[in-house]
Nucleic acid binder design. Structure first.
Lengths: 210, 210
DNA sequence: GGGACCTCTCTTGTATACATACGCCGCCGG
DNA sequence: CCGGCGGCGTATGTATACAAGAGAGGTCCC
């Protein structure tokens, strides 16, 4: 999502701000203004403006009163909402994916679980998290529903936010990996109903284990 | 969605372009460039740029090769994808709405069906369509899931696109109204499963009846 | 004659200057 | 003492000028 794939100042500012928000470096609720950001990043207001607009359309910034842009604050209620949306969207994608999965798709997903297992074994929680997100993206991609994937991409930032306090122990990572492996098995067997169910349980439980 | 609620040139250009795309006036697949649009609307490139970025992030414009922005082309496959997403998202919202609906919510929805019936009776297909969209928005709003509503808003443009060739006869409009009334009944009775099912059938069938 | 390179142009990216609108603060009047 | 009103400051909205990159077409060399 965001600013296509082009390497531009607007894209860099966007990435920087996004990373700042997701890491919690930019505290929720604080206001951003164009000039200080432009100054801070050593660019003019124009690319900053663009980055701010993009982040706003993704919901990471929310227009406040007093004509300000505030860093979004995810409440507990918001968290469960994100989970519900993921369940709905990824569930729909999974059902379609069952009908369309090729052996190559299955292999690609298997490869990801293997990498995940390695990350879990080496206790590399950062790369594990990245692989986890990639797995879900890849699974949705199998459905070949570009608009749905686009929505999930947008949601990705929120998912990351909801996972900030999640445990990252080896045990936990291995558990998640096992669940992913199971999901791939179900996909390969084309058990649409079972896959959907397992996926929904997987996503929901992720939100619980904190 | 789009450009907040402010009255600005960027917002006007955005609305104009959006309307053009949704009405089919801007043919799918054609490329837009900033200068001609700026010239056509009598503004500078800056607001045009902003409008284009917003439309792109909503998916109404897609980046093509040769660094162009093309008006989105909704294929048949894309149509069914939109329906599937609506089913997933609105279904999830409906389930939650059942748990949260207040008498006021129900009344507001009833009022909309009444207005719809009038539009159907007077054969005013344009206001009927608007009310239909508003009904679905309102139903989702009952769930009080702002992010989900935001996604549905974004999807709204595509929904409109998929409905371009839909029949608008009095019979058809009355049928849809009846279905809406039934949905409200189920919501009031808090029959979550039934509501979800009926809603999914309603949305799916809408796409069929063309 | 064909292919590669070079240049030219057209478009988008960026900077900056100007306009405007909105909120805030202080003053005045009730 | 409170409430409204007006000026001021600061933010965003807009215009425009400049830069840079990518594609197209022509030309030159092999």
């Amino acid at each position: 999502m965001g600013t296509d794939g082009r390497d531009t100042k607007a894209a860099r500012v966007y990435e920087a701000l996004r990373a700042g928000i997701l890491s919690g470096e930019l505290v929720a609720g604080s206001a951003l203004d164009e000039v200080s950001l432009a100054d801070a990043h050593g660019v003019s207001r124009t690319p900053v403006r663009e980055a701010l607009r993009t982040l706003t359309s993704e919901g990471l910034l929310v227009p406040g009163s007093r004509r300000q842009l505030l860093v979004v604050d995810v409440s507990e209620r918001h968290r469960s909402e994100i989970v519900a949306i993921r369940v709905a969207l990824e569930g729909a994608a999974a059902a379609e994916a069952c009908a369309r999965a090729t052996p190559d798709d299955v292999d690609a997903l298997r490869l990801l679980t293997i990498k995940q297992r390695r990350s879990a074994d080496t206790d590399d929680s950062e790369s594990f998290l990245r692989l986890d997100e990639e797995f879900h993206r890849a699974l949705a991609a199998v459905a070949a529903m570009p608009t749905l994937s686009r929505l999930l991409m947008q949601l990705g930032a929120f998912v990351r936010l909801t996972r900030l306090g999640e445990p990252t122990g080896r045990r936990h990572m291995r558990g998640l990996t096992r669940e992913h492996e199971h999901l791939v098995d179900l996909l390969e067997a084309r058990e649409a109903a079972g896959l959907r169910e397992a996926l929904e349980a997987h996503i929901s439980s992720t939100a619980q284990r904190r």
